[in-house]
Design a protein around this nucleic acid. Structure first.
Lengths: 188, 188, 188, 188
DNA sequence: AATGAATGAGTATTCATTCAT
DNA sequence: CATGAATGAATACTCATTCAT
């Protein structure tokens, strides 16, 4: 029995759509994971990206790869900002806070199952990126004498995980509450 | 049609098993949710409790009810400890830390979907339970002057959510790292 | 958005349907596997059995279990016939030939991937079941002096695999061609 | 939008690569089908051949065409050997046995779905190729008086299908077991 | 009231086939 | 004419929920 109507198959835009699809998938994953958590259906990511299921799997063979790619975007932005001359720790934390509100967030990476050796490396990149700003802030007296970059990273992780737990809530307000408390642990 | 051996069905212990089943389900839920997260299969909870699926649904019509009941056990333990004469804040936080390591933990409740109006009430009970100890600790100079019970609760929430994210890790070690940082935000 | 019409869900006949479902699944598997090969969709088996997908997986956790169960039926029938007083080798081979034409057939088992330690055991049961008849036939001069039960089993395997390869063909005619040749290898 | 590095796409060698690709595909198909069975992913064949998916489809519009082409290679080798002056039946069967161990094998063709009218023709070519050697062997007393080329072909088919069923096993040992039995049906 | 089997919707994943470049 | 990315249908498998016993 032949189908009655021609299937409304998405137009095949050809290989040139590859990089665009990849970007769309990363952006969609960042949003979907932020909204529904890291266990959200991959089909939802593909649909939001406007991309076929197969293409998703071609670009990212598993869930971790996709989350990692989205997170990579976050990290690259952090590194880029850290490299700009006038950037201080506050600016970096603002950016990171924005990310934990609207994107995959660090915690999602952690909760992938820990069964991936790529995770610690990415975390370390963030630590490395913020380390100079941490040092500078400490010297400027805007951070406790004994605060390390690892401390800051732990604070980020805690805030991030707490924010990620509140799917429906006002994420920015939650994040600000977290930082209000954590600042007291880090600031002099 | 070959005769079929009678299924080795668990003996139906009748209505008297009700309360016992309920307790078994709560205990099983606390463990299973702690191990596999709040999204663990409910069938796993029923199996660990040694109880039929249907009984689980009779006692707890949805996942939230079950988690709430398990959490209720936690809260009751906290309240009981708080009511004991010699209890100070440290003892309460030790108990709560034990709970976030080995049981459902506060964060699981939060991440249930937020679509439940019972959550804030339970959270408030914890705040109320720890409030006297917080006040006492502040007066004794073991807490910052400006620290509130809500601050402590937020710290608990952050630590709890961070611990919950690390399925495989050494949860106690993670919890201790969190408190090492958070203490600086709360202690003078 | 609620569904417009009530889903035409199959009536739940309750636990008592269990044994019946199991039998229906085995029968359906025997047919479907015989028709489309051992790699046929399991959903097709469930549908033909008139049973839900989940029930199929409850009864038979993997494809091999299902094929083994269907094969078990075959073996049991062979053993039963072998135990009847007047049975000779020809009768057994007739039954086996019927099975390779209309049911799972031995070859399906072999082609499951060899990654199952249960397979050799079942094959051995067939060898054991036919061994007395082989011995008797040899003594009666209806089998070559040097023919063993293993030889007969190998002949069965070859005929079976050849028949199984011909999905569309007249399987009985093919089987008879095979035996016409193989008889010359086994008979004096 | 970040610039994307040019994909390391295989160099397009142009039309002249046509025949070479065709050969590579046939060789790859022979191997892949022998290893994983006739239902192996076509993408695996293309990859092993080092050829694009599209080229595979251009050369061979469906799975049967590809298998048929690989089989054609086998048949051509048989015909070539049969045409050599000193070739006897044993030499031909040795070659055919090698093919059923390491290549597509006759049975694969059969199991393609039978819905192809080209199959009988290829089979007939093998029968024709071996017929003179069969005749010669019979005259030399190395074959039973009543053995025909069709009998030999049937034996080949059975051995071939049995070997093909054992994905993991030692295919040569299996083939030798088959021939040990089948020889008794064919030899005097 | 307890039990656990039955049900099928939902999700992950693979792969045949098409088609822009 | 070659390439390989894009597409989505097909299939395996899980698990929340219902319900006969």
């Amino acid at each position: 029995m032949t189908p009655v109507a021609a299937a409304p198959r998405r137009e095949n835009r050809g290989p040139s759509a590859g990089p665009e699809n990849r970007r769309a998938l990363i952006a969609a994953a960042a949003e979907v994971f932020a909204e529904k958590g890291i266990t959200a259906p991959l089909s939802a990511v593909a649909k939001r990206a406007g991309v076929g299921q197969g293409s998703l799997y071609r670009h990212f063979p598993d869930r971790t790869s996709l989350a990692l790619a989205a997170f990579e975007d976050n990290v690259a932005a952090i590194e880029a900002l850290a490299d700009e001359p006038g950037t201080d720790l506050d600016a970096l934390l603002d950016l990171i806070t924005d990310q934990m509100i609207g994107s995959v967030a660090f915690v999602s990476i952690v909760s992938l199952g820990a069964a991936d050796e790529r995770l610690p490396a990415v975390g370390q990149r963030v630590v490395d990126a913020i380390a100079p700003a941490v040092e500078q802030a400490r010297k400027a007296g805007r951070l406790r004498r004994d605060a390390t970059a690892d401390d800051v990273m732990l604070a980020i992780g805690m805030a991030s995980s707490f924010v990620a737990q509140n799917p429906g809530a006002d994420r920015r307000a939650v994040a600000e509450s977290c930082w209000a408390l954590l600042d007291r642990a880090l600031r002099p």
